[in-house]
């Protein structure tokens, strides 16, 4: 057994959190102002052409299932694998 008291980096954790907080507050001044995004070329293309190319009024739905369908396939597989592992963990055993 490793002694837990000896390897408790409490000060190190607190100092790293404070450094991360200061760094992220400096990022606020570098980012674009709220409500005025700069690089919107791809989104404008989607909004302009999604109705004609996919026939769906909902642009989010056309991105999820058509333009980026591979992401949705991976996500459905993740949900399937999670349900399978939960039923492996919590399912009752057969008394054979």
């Amino acid at each position: 057994m490793v002694d837990n008291k000896k390897y408790n980096f409490r000060k190190f954790k607190i100092i790293s959190l404070i450094i991360l907080f200061i760094y992220l507050t400096f990022v606020i001044f570098l980012i674009h102002p709220f409500g005025e995004p700069k690089a919107t070329k791809m989104d404008d293309y989607f909004i302009k052409n999604a109705q004609r190319q996919t026939g769906s009024n909902n642009v989010v739905s056309s991105i999820v299932f058509d333009y980026r369908g591979l992401d949705t396939l991976g996500e459905a597989s993740v949900l399937f694998i999670a349900v399978m592992s939960i039923s492996l963990i919590l399912g009752e055993k057969k008394n054979t």
């Binding site: 995004p37 919107t40 791809m42 989104d43 989607f46 909004i47 999604a50 642009v59 989010v60 991105i63 999820v64 980026r68 992401d71 949705t72 996500e75 993740v78 949900l79 694998i81 999670a82 349900v83 592992s85 939960i86 963990i89 919590l90």
Partner: peptide
């Protein structure tokens, strides 16, 4: 912009799967 909303839809479901797995463990 529609693209971040589509990506967040993916992220929410994956977060739900991870949370259910953690709770069962």
């Amino acid at each position: 912009s529609p693209t971040p909303q589509a990506l967040i839809l993916t992220n929410i479901v994956i977060n739900l799967a991870v949370t259910a797995f953690l709770l069962s463990l």
